[in-house]
Computed example of a mutant assay.
Amino acid sequence: MTAKSAILSATALRDELTGPRPPLLLDVRWQLGGPDQRPAYLAGHLPGAVYVDLDSELAGPPGAGGRHPLPDPEAFGAAMRRAGVGADGPVVVYDGGQGWAAARAWWLLRWAGHPDVRVLDGGLAAWTAAGGEVTAGQVTPAEGDFKPTPGALGVLDADAAALRAREGVLLDARAGERYRGEVEPIDPVGGHIPGALSAPTTENVDADGRFLPAEALRARFGALGASAGAPVGVYCGSGVSGAHEVLALEVAGIGADLYAGSWSHWSSDPSRPVATGPDPQ
């Protein structure tokens, strides 16, 4: 049996929703520093979709672990059960189209041991562009029975991320200007982890926010030294867009570990080294 891809198209999702085992839909629309997206969800969402809030349900409280640290497994499990997530029932997550929040939900569920979770490629925008209907109002599902067993995906701490940059490949998923230290709108200092390579996650998708073909992604990551079997790590600002890069690597057939605290954690300790400027030649 061929393994499922980590992503699926709007047309494929529409077929599955009328099939014998329709997936649970989770709406995880979110904007960094933007307004709460629950009103947008209530105004219109995929039929049957349940809203999940990234800041309160897909992350722990901000603090020493970064701006979006990993949530407590018990708290995460409770949030997923409230959203209707079952132990092995299929789940499809989506956001407004950027893909970052949906990837965060995908990564957390995979990390916590869920066996069947995928991302709607292109999000809500792709769904409506394909003629999919939306419905308004709150959806309250039956309680799920999912119980996290963390560890199914690899996680790096600060020391492990520094080692990965020296002995493997560590990709920085943020915008190039933040990697180079030219601007830093959020965290205490600009720059990057020494030895990390710039790989903005925005370059993994097309103009509509849909992932590039697997072959194109393999070529992109291969040029950075990331290939199947290689020790690859990813970080970003706070573990959200980095999850999107891990998803892109998964589409390309390349496994990667996530530094969940990412730059918001690294830069919080002034004793940690900071590099600036372009990629090392």
Rank of each mutant, 00 (worst) to 15 (best):
G77A: 11
A78C: 10
R164T: 15
G242S: 10
L163D: 14
L42C: 14
D206N: 13
G84H: 00
T202P: 04
P90A: 00
G222M: 01
P141E: 04
V52C: 04
A275C: 07
G242F: 02
P115H: 05
A75V: 13
G242Y: 00
A10S: 05
R272F: 11
E16H: 05
E184H: 09
A129Q: 08
G277D: 14
W30K: 02
L109N: 01
G253A: 13
L24V: 01
P273L: 13
V85Y: 05
G66D: 11
L247A: 01
V28G: 02
A219P: 01
G181H: 07
A228K: 08
S271F: 04
P213M: 10
V134W: 10
P47D: 09
P150N: 07
P47G: 08
V91F: 00
E74H: 13
D53S: 08
A43P: 09
A160F: 08
Q98T: 13
A199I: 02
F221H: 08
G48K: 00
R164S: 10
A162L: 07
A83C: 10
A130P: 02
E143G: 14
A102C: 08
G137N: 12
C236T: 07
G77I: 03
D157N: 07
L171M: 10
L108S: 03
W127R: 09
A207T: 11
P90T: 02
G84N: 12
G123F: 02
T135F: 03
A228C: 08
T140W: 06
V246F: 01
G209R: 06
V93I: 00
T201W: 15
A64F: 06
G77C: 11
V134M: 15
P213T: 03
W266D: 07
